[in-house]
């Protein structure tokens, strides 16, 4: 199963430059043409399944607008100690 990830784009910081759109290796980011940020930009958002949480979008983002999350696969986890 592929690693599941997702991003949150901060409306305050995103300027709709679309560098994340062209950098995303999974092609799952686009500008949201139905929304404007308070500053008047179309913000980036996820448009499809397939984000792996690779953070490429966040690294290229000039505005540190993207927070990247990733699910840690259960099998890689050590068994937690009993409480």
């Amino acid at each position: 199963m592929p690693v599941k990830g997702w991003i949150e784009v901060d409306d305050m910081h995103c300027k709709g430059c679309a560098l994340c759109v062209s950098a995303c290796p999974q092609d799952v980011i686009a500008l949201n043409m139905d929304r404007l940020t308070p500053k008047g930009y179309h913000p980036a958002h996820l448009i499809d399944e397939g984000c792996t949480g690779c953070a490429v979008c966040a690294i290229i983002c000039p505005d540190a607008a993207i927070t990247v999350f990733r699910e840690v696969p259960v099998h890689s986890k050590k068994a937690p100690e009993s409480a």
Binding site: I66, F69, E71, V72, P73, A79, P80, S82
Partner: peptide
């Protein structure tokens, strides 16, 4: 044993 719920990690 803890339930097999995936842990979320902030990557960035």
């Amino acid at each position: 044993t803890a339930p097999a719920k995936p842990e979320v990690k902030v990557v960035f």
